[in-house]
């Protein structure tokens, strides 16, 4: 197998074998979705109205939980040095880690979202849009998150500063993602919103490996 696939597969294996893998993020996602009706009341009309936004925010926060370990584990146990000296460029290393994070977090969250949409009284059409928007948009969360994770990888309490750094940068994903659902609820097409979301996601996945690699390189110098 080529180095890229090797690293991707190993990271997936590690995610599956440590701390219940995606289960943690999924539970958190479901929990936030459960707390919202408890907070705002069980008005089904209102819940359907806010479902897109709430579930998008909840998904971003859930994906955030495991992000700070993206490079940190490999940094602390010395694996990152070995990987850095391997034939795999650090940019590709970052991309592999972004993909592994998405496959082990973003994708499961997306798959769970229709169930939660049901609890929020969301109709079929907006539910499909929510599903699509998460499918398109969560890679951006992993990608932008990778930048934050690489910048804070030498910090003992990087998990605290990471959200502060990346949440403002993820505003477009939440806006376009939840906006797509909103458009469908208002009886309009969601194509424009999904298109913008895809563009944002594509740009993030394309560019963030460079920023992440630069900051990993910087941290290896210490």
């Amino acid at each position: 197998m080529n180095p890229f696939g090797t690293l991707l597969l190993r990271d997936l294996k590690l995610a599956a074998r440590s701390g219940g893998g995606a289960a943690l993020a999924l539970s958190f996602f479901a929990l936030v979705a459960t707390l919202v009706p408890l907070g705002v009341g069980a008005d089904l009309k209102l819940l359907a109205r806010v479902a897109g936004g709430i579930l998008w925010v909840a998904a971003v926060l859930s994906a955030l939980l495991s992000l700070d370990r993206l490079f940190q584990g490999d940094f602390e146990d010395g694996s990152l040095e070995v990987i850095a000296l391997s034939p795999l460029a650090l940019e590709m290393t970052a991309l592999a880690k972004i993909m592994a994070h998405w496959l082990s977090t973003g994708l499961p969250l997306t798959l769970l979202s229709p169930v939660l949409a049901l609890l929020f009284n969301l109709d079929v059409a907006p539910t499909v849009t929510l599903f699509l928007s998460l499918l398109i948009g969560t890679p951006a969360v992993s990608a932008v998150g990778a930048i934050g994770a690489s910048l804070t990888l030498s910090l003992k309490r990087g998990g605290l500063i990471l959200p502060l750094i990346i949440l403002p940068l993820l505003a477009p994903a939440v806006i376009f993602g939840a906006g797509a659902v909103r458009l469908v609820l208002d009886g309009m097409g969601s194509g424009s919103a999904l298109g913008l979301l895809a563009a944002f996601s594509f740009g993030a996945v394309l560019l963030s490996p460079f920023a992440a690699a630069a900051s990993v390189r910087l941290n290896l110098g210490g």
Binding site: E76, G78, S79, E81, A84, P87
Partner: peptide, 18 residues
């Protein structure tokens, strides 16, 4: 240069789960 180097650092670079 890195492509010619075999590295053995302070840490062994092993994952407990593997």
């Amino acid at each position: 240069r890195g492509k010619s180097i075999g590295w053995l650092g302070h840490q062994d670079g092993l994952k407990p789960q593997l």
